[in-house]
Computed example of a mutant assay.
Amino acid sequence: MSLLNSMLNTVEWGEYSFKSIFDKIVQGRRLKKDDQISGKIPFVMAGVTNSGIVNYISNPVAVFPKNSITIDIFGNTFYRDYYFGAGDDTGVYWSEHNNYSKETMKFFAISMSKVLDGKFDFGRKLRSSQSLDFKMMLPIKNGKIDFNFIDKFIAKLEAERVSELVTYLSRAGMNDCNLTPEETNALHDYEYLEFSEFNVIDIFTVKNTNSILSRDILENSGDTPYLCASRDNNSVSTYISYDKKKLDEGNCVFIGGKTFVVSYQENDFYSNDSHNLVLYIKDGEKRTKLNQLYLATCVDKSLGHKYSWGDSISNKKIQKDKISLPVKDNQPDLSSLATLISAVQKLVIRDLIQYVNQKSDSNILVEYAS
């Protein structure tokens, strides 16, 4: 990072409005979830999960070009190097007259994100027409945008990140991407699983977390996770040292109460709000990490559509909620969840290794991608 920081500190900077950079700024079109037809077109809406891609559709919607940037109503900013559709809560930015490189567009996206960060939420939503006069900082040389610097900087940044990923995969021993027969079967059989709804409280013991206000903590003062209702960093805001009487037990499914962010928490933790919920599997033998990674997704998919900032979940409400789970003999079938998640993890690791091998000149880990 010292080299990259040095590059940023030595370059000259100038301000440029969004409208001076892009000659195309278009708002997406409304397409309700119930009207979306399964297909191959990525459909983007407001949110950060999966970079805002909520579905793959075949509806006759406007398809936006590759090499575009999207900004949703909350200011979440993403670069897109593929064709896609977008909902009416997302603005799309690109240029038809300037042949910006992929690296330059990535730099634009980062700079735009910094300008918008923290300015928008449910109470104040951004529309693309409002963003025209926002100004981002860009490297300049002789009074003009220094595209050569931008392209070199992004290339170096990407190379550094790939190097870090190679090191992480190697040190973590993530070199086994070969599926076992059981994992292969679990992936194959998943398509044929039957699902049924069960009361949340029949599967989990539900509790409110303790509450420690952010003003009462010292950030980075310890090694215990301090959780908030954010999707970033698995809801971990910082790590602190605090009164152990305020600890919540880990190895659980955690729900950020006001935002309905669902995650698995492996370790004991502190919480920023008593509106947050923890769910503990009643069947102790099934309370494994892999099982709960799957169950956290089940909770999110089953209940996520019900709750929002203005209508948040609570311990009282969840008592009447149901979640969809695999079923066998009319009972929840949690027997194969761990095997399925193990298989998915291996597939993700394989994709990471293949990505590294495509981006890196090194032959490290090539053998593991086969």
Rank of each mutant, 00 (worst) to 15 (best):
D243P: 04
L247M: 09
R215Q: 14
E219N: 09
G222E: 10
V236D: 04
T205G: 06
F204H: 03
K207D: 13
Y226T: 03
S214R: 14
S221E: 09
K207S: 12
I212L: 15
K207M: 13
K207T: 12
Y239S: 00
A229D: 00
T205Q: 13
Y226A: 03
S211T: 13
I203Q: 04
R231K: 13
D216V: 06
D243W: 07
G222V: 08
T224C: 07
G222D: 11
D243Q: 05
K207R: 15
N210D: 02
D223M: 03
K207W: 12
D223P: 00
E249F: 10
T224K: 08
D232T: 06
D248L: 12
R215K: 15
N220Q: 12
I201P: 00
C228I: 15
S214A: 15
D243T: 07
T238Y: 11
L227F: 12
C228W: 07
C228Q: 12
Y239L: 05
N234Y: 06
D243M: 07
S221T: 08
L218Q: 14
N208I: 01
N233L: 03
N233K: 09
R215M: 13
T205M: 14
T205F: 13
Y242G: 00
V206D: 04
T205W: 10
R215V: 14
D248N: 15
P225F: 05
T238M: 11
V206M: 05
R231V: 10
I240F: 05
S230R: 11
I240T: 02
N233S: 06
S230F: 10
I212N: 03
N210L: 02
N210K: 11
G222L: 09
Y239D: 01
S230M: 11
R215Y: 13
S241L: 12
N208Q: 05
S214L: 14
N233E: 06
D248Q: 14
S230L: 08
K244T: 15
D232S: 09
A229R: 01
A229P: 00
T205K: 14
I212F: 08
E249R: 13
I212T: 13
L213A: 13
N210R: 09
I203D: 04
D202R: 03
F204W: 03
R231T: 14
P225M: 08
I212M: 11
S221Y: 06
I201E: 03
S211V: 09
R215D: 15
R231W: 05
S241V: 06
T224Y: 08
S230D: 10
V200R: 01
D243C: 05
K244H: 14
S235I: 03
I217C: 08
K246A: 06
N234V: 05
P225Y: 09
